[in-house]
């Protein structure tokens, strides 16, 4: 019964895809897993109202695969979450990304949905964004004319808004191979244990020098308009001894920042206490 009334083009390689994109206008969108586009189109979302052409990138080898090269882990844009969950490299080097990917939707959704689709759609609740942000991910974007690299944080502009320009395609996600001694965790809260849109996501990486925090990276999703890092919090924590007091202070500051960004919304009464409590719990869990 679902008829999205679009023409679907299926380029076999990156060159063809970029050529198609170069000719396309704003009525053309990229189809990866389709878990946002098809659903949005069916629901009558304004974001896809004008869309009449879809360029299916699933057959393009250049957009697939996960490998490590020159100190960078490179993940193809059209890699599905199921593929990420199965990757030994991701499991070993980017455990937070694996954990975040495994919490997405259902197995069926993870079999279709892609990592680039997650942040190109840029819903506030995009599960892998906080994980990618703490790993300092950057992305490679290509058009027929050029290739550019940009940090993910910079790429994400606002809810459902990114820096992706007409004619451009995200081709790869590049993550600097983390130093082994970072400890960290990812947390997701949904209304149920599977097939749940996140109410809160948190990702933290900590590098300890004895009891002292040498480096810390903090990101959240679903409680702020888009997934974001918390540089002020990170600066505050760096160089401090990881005491219970510090963790409480950090959690309160997280609450303050979230409040500052969002103001009081209908959901704040719930989300503010939960973000502070669960951030504290996450830090305590990492501290162990």
């Amino acid at each position: 019964m679902i008829d999205i009334m679009c023409e679907v083009l299926t380029p076999e390689n990156l060159t063809d895809a970029l050529q198609l994109l170069a000719k396309a206008d704003s009525t053309t969108k990229i189809l990866a897993g389709g878990t946002d586009v098809v659903v949005g189109k069916t629901q009558g979302s304004k974001r896809f109202a004008d869309t009449v052409t879809l360029i299916d990138i699933n057959r393009i080898e250049e957009l697939k695969g996960i490998f490590e090269k020159d100190g960078m882990i490179s993940i193809g844009a059209a890699t599905t979450f199921s593929e990420i969950c199965k990757s030994k490299l991701v499991e070993e080097k980017l455990p937070l990304l694996k954990k975040a990917s495994s919490t997405i939707g259902s197995l069926q959704i993870r079999n279709r949905a892609t990592i680039a689709g997650n942040f190109v759609n840029n819903a506030p609740c995009a599960d892998t964004v906080p994980a990618l942000l703490v790993y300092d991910a950057s992305i490679e974007i290509k058009s027929q004319a050029a290739t550019r690299n940009i940090s993910l944080q910079e790429f994400l502009q606002g809810p459902y808004k990114t820096q992706l320009q007409q004619g451009e395609l995200v081709t790869r996600i590049l993550v600097p191979t983390p130093k082994q001694n970072y400890a960290g965790d990812f947390y997701k809260l949904g209304r149920r244990r599977a097939v749940a849109i996140s109410r809160l996501t948190l990702a933290v990486l900590i590098l300890l020098n004895g009891k002292e925090i040498a480096d810390i990276k903090i990101a959240s999703g679903a409680v702020t308009p888009i997934g974001k890092r918390f540089p002020k919090l990170e600066e505050f924590a760096k160089g401090k001894v990881m005491t219970d007091n510090l963790l409480r202070d950090l959690s309160k500051k997280m609450g303050e920042e979230v409040l500052a960004v969002t103001g009081l919304r209908w959901s704040s009464d719930y989300k503010l206490p939960v973000v502070q409590q669960m951030f504290y719990q996450l830090l305590k869990g990492i501290e162990r």
Binding site: K252, P273, Q276, K284, G285
Partner: peptide, 20 residues
């Protein structure tokens, strides 16, 4: 009782992990 009278927590509102 969990009273959330102010948006930002007081210290005693944080729960010890084993009581969560």
């Amino acid at each position: 009782e969990y009273v959330f009278d102010k948006p930002i927590f007081r210290d005693e509102q944080f729960i010890a992990p084993d009581s969560l």
